[in-house]
Design a protein around this nucleic acid. Structure first.
Lengths: 342, 342
DNA sequence: TGTTAGCACTCATTCTTTTGGAGTGCTAAC
DNA sequence: GTTAGCACTCCAAAAGAATGAGTGCTAACA
């Protein structure tokens, strides 16, 4: 089996790029004209035949043009695709309005991204569990209800109402606040486990039985967000790509985006995998979601420091515009960084 | 033009019910067998012809069976459809797990409802603006940040972090808390307007300039939720109805559910319209959303007392199973009522 | 030895034609 | 008023025919 020489690479690249644009199988004649190689269609045919043997392209059926295989896309993304200059990237700012509520920002980010790229997008909120607690407060709502407010370094706020069995004195609440803040401040939420809670309960023992149930509730508030929050947008963009808009596939795909549960797996996988660039491309089955086996997924991890991280993802057809997508994600990641850091 | 006699009503009802099941145009022969009227197909044909003249049914093309017109559906919903006994309804409990977080409950409600009915569903969170404030607290996070927590009678919690320009003494915060609680407790959020805030600012004047900006932030927290929160589920169910799964229509439809903005209009319209039963049926263009002109929408308003209300909606094809849907909504409304009241 | 022109062949797509059947409207008889 | 009978309409599915893009292969050429 011969190796990929320069000419073959050029031809493969041309095939893929043409296919990215048109979505139609690419014939030898098209390539013969499209490239500046000045080769006849017959020659191209020979080369194509070789490329097919090597597994980079294939025919949907005899007597059709060629389309890239997953292996072909992989090579394209890894080696053939042009890296754009960072500078050029900076220019087309995505124009995200500044808002202070994290939730709103994230919703707007996915929205803008989906509109700009014409693919389906998702973003996970900065993960709470790797975030440190910085403030806990119990306040009396009325005789039998307290409200717990928990704030983290990442400025995420969670709260819940606790129903008491019996009344609690102001003094007890005050002392409990003191205890909680002293014991838990600066500790990553993920590290708050059962042992720790048992220990706290023991320390709090003197304040009576009620305290125990309060602590359970507090623990609950802290841990509640094990499953990440994910915002999505543009799921219906897949209808723009005929190869994906078959109604049963589309239905599954959109459901995946609607339910969000499966997206969590994707985000987790992304976060686990620490790449140098932080940008990953999953082609076809490479992604951990079955309903996306006909798609490509591009993800980027953004960092807000102190291990607080989130993931942005773009899902589209395999023939997605990888250059642009990777590029947009780079820009966006930088923007999120500066946006949240201050 | 002759009137609708008993026989015509029976025939029309049979036509509609058959069409609800099959989704196919209904022919005279089918009806002749299906009903216990013991009439030949020829007779049915004559009656059908009359019904068509009256506008209750129409033919998609000559030599096809009949399908109900919007007017036909309307009559069916208003007069022909059987009202089920409340008792029967009670039986098939929708089995909603008890959770304390309102958001989770609502998400689960729409989800269950969508799965049970096979239609697209939506629910609006109890409207905050008609809800009374019951607790406001400012707490110091650090030297230059405060966190505001606002709790309403409906036990909805909102909060936000406020950045200060200059430091604020503990005493000021304490006094501010006192002032806010005294002035705002028990007041419907909707009534907190600019005049009121100006007045508060004046009262707070003595505590310095910072206070003003804090109050702005507080006002912002309270008012932020003018646009209702809406949860949706099962948008992809429309693919189960061929007459709606044409890809361009489906795309628009699902987008509407994804964006949610337009659903707000629907909810607002429902809330404005105070019907005796609280259950409304919009057929075709009757609904205020263009993308649903080929659908029917059934909504119910649920009340948690004190003017705190929300809306549940079910969207499906015109040939939806109105009896069941109306029924499910009745049950659900009762459940929500008991669930949140305590 | 690599490149190219030429040609027969394949096969999806598109358009047309055919056929079948469900359903109607009308008429005449009961 | 109801029904049987019949001619007629028209959609939908099946079958057939035409089109054309694209291939693989062979033989000739530089």
């Amino acid at each position: 089996m011969e190796q990929l020489d320069g000419r073959k690479k050029k031809i493969l690249k041309a095939i893929i790029q043409t296919y990215l644009e048109t979505g139609e199988p690419v014939g030898s004649r098209t390539i013969s004209k499209f490239t500046d190689l000045n080769l006849s269609s017959a020659t191209i045919r020979n080369e194509m035949s070789d490329l097919e043997d090597m597994g980079y392209i294939h025919q949907p059926h005899t007597s059709a043009g060629r389309i890239p295989s997953d292996k072909g896309y992989r090579l394209y993304v890894d080696a053939l695709m042009a890296e754009k200059d960072e500078e050029i990237a900076e220019i087309k700012d995505l124009m995200i309005e500044k808002t202070d509520k994290m939730e709103k920002v994230l919703k707007q980010v996915v929205r803008t991204l989906a509109q700009n790229t014409n693919y389906a997008t998702l973003i996970s909120a900065p993960s709470f569990s790797s975030d440190r607690l910085k403030f806990i407060q119990l306040s009396r709502l009325n005789n039998l209800q307290l409200v717990v407010v928990v704030v983290t370094e990442g400025n995420r706020i969670r709260n819940e109402i606790i129903d008491l069995e019996e009344q609690m004195s102001d003094d007890t609440i005050f002392k409990l606040n003191f205890l909680l803040n002293n014991s838990l401040n600066g500790i990553p939420a993920a590290e708050i486990n059962l042992g720790m809670i048992a220990q706290l309960k023991e320390q709090a023992g003197e304040y009576g039985e009620v305290v125990s149930s309060v602590l359970d509730a507090v623990a609950n508030v802290i841990q509640v967000d094990e499953d990440l929050e994910i915002y999505t947008s543009g799921a219906t963009n897949i209808f723009k790509y005929p190869e994906l808009s078959d109604s049963s596939k589309a239905s599954e795909f959109i459901s995946t985006f609607e339910e969000k549960q499966q997206l969590v797996d994707l985000v987790k996988e992304t976060m686990a995998d620490e790449e140098s660039t932080g940008i990953q491309v999953y082609i076809g089955d490479e992604a951990p979601i079955k309903t996306m086996k006909d798609c490509s997924v591009v993800t980027a991890t953004y960092e807000l420091g102190q291990g607080i991280r989130g993931t942005i993802g773009i899902v589209g057809p395999k023939r997605m515009d990888y250059e642009n997508v990777v590029d947009s994600l780079k820009v966006l990641r930088a923007q999120l960084d500066t946006m949240f850091r201050k």
